[in-house]
């Protein structure tokens, strides 16, 4: 199987007052047709930026190196309107929160047909037909009447289904799903995960599935890559990554997870975990290291550190942290 989307040696840095802050460091990933490539990691690991860079939505002024191949074309060399022809048509995207990714003042129909007419140059009527078919595919019933309704008339789960319908309306080969179920209740999440899996199997879609939730990852991904500090530390078949991880950080993540192989199964495990090892490992070790310096040199330093911490938060904010 050849990969439809191939990310090669992608590095990204954001220039600031104190030089370039590295965000991504030599990221390589391949997504094949009919396959879900998972990208896991905690907040600030760089997983969302990876997805955004594929569709050219990395932060302005980012310094990007590497290649992102889509069907033999390097997306990093494409700019402007040529990139618009790819976004939405050949690569669809679903974001975390359907209540903000859908336009609240536009009907579902407008949001489902605008990009279809732009990309595929079809008539209004044909675009509407495609929109109804797209809604049908994601299990939102009601046919043509649904197109006249607004996002607020739908539940969170239905809104995310609609967002998926919009992403798939132009029948892209690749779908980037960034925490698509994180804002949903588990009973609603179950339906959306089943939908994504069935679309992958029936349409041969290639999906880059980004999530911090390893339970979700275990349910839906074929391959799992684990990111930390902008680097991919492990990438392998799902079962192997969960049951025989080769990387120490992956093992650490699983060990702190209830129900994972080698993870927490009982209160006794919790007690053992809290006695052994670093207390706040993985939360933000760099923050901790800097914090020690801040405490040692007093308040002024602490204030300065606080400011740089706020900058970091902005970047994390783009990482689709759980609500």
């Amino acid at each position: 199987m050849t990969a439809i989307l191939r990310i090669e040696h992608l590095s990204l840095g954001i220039p600031g007052e104190d030089g370039v802050t590295p965000i991504l460091d030599d990221v390589s990933l391949a997504v094949e047709a009919g396959q879900v490539q998972g990208l896991a990691g905690e907040s600030g690991s760089g997983k969302t930026i990876t997805g955004l860079t594929v569709i050219g939505l990395e932060p302005a002024k980012s310094q990007v190196t590497g290649r992102i191949w889509l069907d033999g074309e390097d997306l990093l060399q494409i700019t402007g309107s040529a990139l618009n022809a790819i976004r939405g048509q050949r690569v669809g995207t679903v974001f975390q929160d359907p209540s903000t990714s859908l336009h609240p003042q536009l009907t579902i129909g407008a949001q489902l047909t605008d990009h279809v007419r732009y990309h595929l140059k079809v008539s209004k009527a044909e675009a509407a037909d495609r929109a109804v078919a797209a809604l049908d595919r994601v299990g939102v019933s009601g046919g043509a009447a649904t197109l006249r309704r607004y996002p607020h008339e739908f539940s969170g789960g239905q809104r995310q289904r609609i967002a998926i319908a919009i992403a798939l309306a132009c029948e892209p080969a690749v779908l980037i799903a960034d925490e698509p179920t994180t804002a949903l209740d588990v009973t609603i999440q179950a339906g959306v995960l089943a939908l994504i899996r069935s679309l992958v199997d029936s349409l041969g879609l290639a999906v880059l599935f980004i999530t911090h939730d390893l339970g979700v990852m275990s349910a839906v991904a074929d391959r799992v890559a684990v990111m930390r500090h902008g680097r991919i530390v492990e990438n392998g078949p799902r079962h192997q990554v969960f049951t025989a991880p080769t990387n120490a950080y992956t093992r650490e993540l699983l060990a702190a997870l209830p129900g994972a192989p080698g993870g927490l199964q009982s209160r006794a495990d919790l007690a053992r975990m809290s006695l052994s090892g670093e207390d706040e490992q993985g939360d933000d070790p760099e923050d901790g290291a800097e914090a020690v310096g801040a405490a040692a040199t007093g308040t002024a330093r602490s204030d300065k550190h606080g400011a740089s911490d706020a900058d970091l938060d902005t970047k994390r904010g783009q990482d689709g942290e759980a609500p």
Binding site: V186, T187, Q189, A190, G191, L193, A194, R197, D213, L214, G215, V216, M217, S218, A219, V220, A221, D222, R238, H239, Q240, V241, F242, T243, L254, L257, G259, A260, P261, G263
Partner: peptide, 20 residues
């Protein structure tokens, strides 16, 4: 029962949670 069945288990099995 529905709530518990919908929780995905991070066991690497690839099993989808039960849809209510």
């Amino acid at each position: 029962k529905t709530l518990l069945a919908a929780i995905p288990t991070p066991d690497g099995s690839g099993r989808l949670p039960t849809v209510p």
